[in-house]
Nucleic acid binder design. Structure first.
Lengths: 336, 336
DNA sequence: TTGTACGCGTTATCAT
DNA sequence: ATGATAACGCGTACAA
């Protein structure tokens, strides 16, 4: 079924059929209804490939995420998807499992597909071959969650947020605060958050405890439990994201700690689920859906203007510290 | 940048360039390397729209999910995405927020894009306008999680699984078991699960307590807490999915129940996170990623054969009851 | 092994 | 307001 057949059925030219769909007011009401009737009768569906070929744009945005397994990214994706629907765009998502090869591979696929732009969360903007390729091919893109002066980004102030968490715990009376993180070299966020942690500890004039670095997030519970059993004097665990915090809570529980009585635990991301856990999760909430929305808005805006996207269009969105049940003042016997 | 320019640069014809990419062995090694060099020099990326138009296939599969907010669906999506990558397909996902209009709207978009087939999770196969449209347009599709004799489906045996849960609780000694569900009319799964629950209760010769039906899953905690405070004599809550179970646990906690001492709670879906909660979640695990994988495999297989997909190719995948900490024998004072 | 030429379905320019 | 027609970039007979 194509535009030709519809034209024939309606007794008009293909040009008229095309106009009926793209510029309905450029066609008389009479012929318009004739064409619409014919199209409906034949169940005509315009062919996007042909249109894309002709117009040289696909109305499609590529999306590159580390994984769908962390709600942070799917909440963000939801924001992107909603905005895309509103603006008449389609999205084409790929996951990279945090590997550089898959980042590059997926970007190539997206490029050859002909996406007009891309939103991506990369491991590290500094060494990303994918970003290099995007630069070379002049493809418009926006980084989400990443933060780097060389690229247009939409994120929150990670170091600042971590200073706030540490300050909050210090004010509760915690003196020995340890951080739990995924592998720092795997992501710029992890690094920035650790920097914020160190700065917060310094400001509060507390001792810097050794970092508990978890190799694989899937066995985080075992890894954290081992660290706690070894020689843990901390009364609070600051985790670099919510999923890790949930696992830290379980690890602490398995080690006999009561949360938050014997051990406070905080997360980062503000995934929806954290509010409904017991204990509910103290965290720094990022506006995940909004990060997605703004990333796409930024991209579309510059797509319209045909101007390249500058790093100085980067957006820093507000974060919010959400104290909840997983943190409290340290109990007496643990502070003496 | 197009195939013409590459041909010119390499000093060959466009046909040779095309062959170099599509049938490398149909071209002499010498010219092949010439072409590859030229393509690399010019950063040539083949135009997918043109290829799609010419070959009449897009190597793209549409995916229709209720939401990205429930890990069940993103775990499934991950399975689809991995399989798609292996098989050289791209995916184009849409969410429907459980509404019929968005189902139809998204299917139309996917159709006009020219996807070769679709994987979808619909609210109810019986009244889905989207499925009607797919039938009419002869588009190959597979339903995931849905189960209906009229359509090709990949799912688990929901009623059977619920019988197993009830049996398990009954054997633990529970006599008063209530079910917590989302709105049953919103999804066929919810209905099938309730049926299984009723059957299980009958088999165990227990009283059928009134269903706790939650209007909106986002305020599930409040809704369940109200129901519990009203007149709850149950010692176990069987929830129709894991997210609901997590919220039921919180609701019960807020009402002063200890889990599982005063109240057992079970979920359904087997989302990864449930294992790391405290208490860990008793649930029936569905092979979510496999449901995605098999759906796509089934689709691709029939795409190859050009044969229409029959309901009798439907796949019933195995589920597994996972007893964990959120359920236990009822305490003495609650059974007397 | 390589090249020529046509057509996929659409939009856009130019006439009428 | 409407129609004829030339591209868009590619794959593939068919010819050489």
């Amino acid at each position: 079924m194509n535009i030709q057949k519809v034209a024939q059925e309606a007794g008009v030219s293909v040009a008229t059929v095309s106009r009926t769909f793209n510029f309905p007011d450029k066609v008389s009401a009479a012929t318009r209804s004739k064409v619409e009737a014919a199209a409906a009768r034949l169940q005509y569906v315009p062919n996007a490939s042909a249109r894309n070929l002709r117009t040289q744009n696909t109305k499609t945005i590529g999306v590159l995420l580390p994984t769908f397994a962390n709600p942070v990214f799917t909440e963000c994706l939801q924001g992107i998807a909603e905005t895309a629907a509103e603006r008449g765009f389609s999205i084409m998502p790929f996951t990279t499992a945090y590997t550089l090869e898959q980042e590059l591979e997926s970007v190539k696929k997206l490029l050859n597909f002909g996406v007009e732009g891309m939103i991506l969360v990369v491991s590290n903007p500094k060494n990303s071959l994918a970003l290099k390729l995007l630069r070379e091919t002049q493809t418009p893109y926006v980084l989400a969650y990443n933060w780097d002066p060389q690229h247009p980004c939409v994120s929150v102030n990670n170091p600042q947020a971590f200073v706030e968490i540490v300050t909050y715990l210090a004010q509760l009376g915690h003196q020995r605060i340890a951080m739990v993180s995924g592998q720092r070299h795997a992501s710029d966020r992890a690094q920035q958050r650790y920097e914020g942690f160190v700065q917060g500890i310094a400001q509060a004039q507390l001792p810097l405890l050794p970092l508990i670095e978890v190799p694989f997030i899937d066995n985080a519970v075992e890894a954290i439990a081992q660290a706690l059993q070894k020689d843990c004097t901390a009364t609070a665990l600051v985790c670099s994201n919510d999923i890790l915090a949930i696992r830290a809570i379980r690890a602490a529980h398995l080690c006999g700690y009561q949360i938050p009585l014997d051990m406070s635990v905080t997360g980062f991301d503000g995934v929806r689920l954290g509010q409904d856990l017991t204990p509910s999760l103290t965290t720094v909430a990022q506006p995940n859906a909004d990060i997605g929305r703004h990333s796409l808005e930024l991209l579309i805006q510059h797509l319209r203007q045909q101007t390249p996207l500058h790093p100085d269009s980067s957006l820093l969105l507000p974060h919010t510290l959400h104290p909840a049940e997983s943190s409290a003042a340290p109990s007496l016997h643990s502070t003496i």
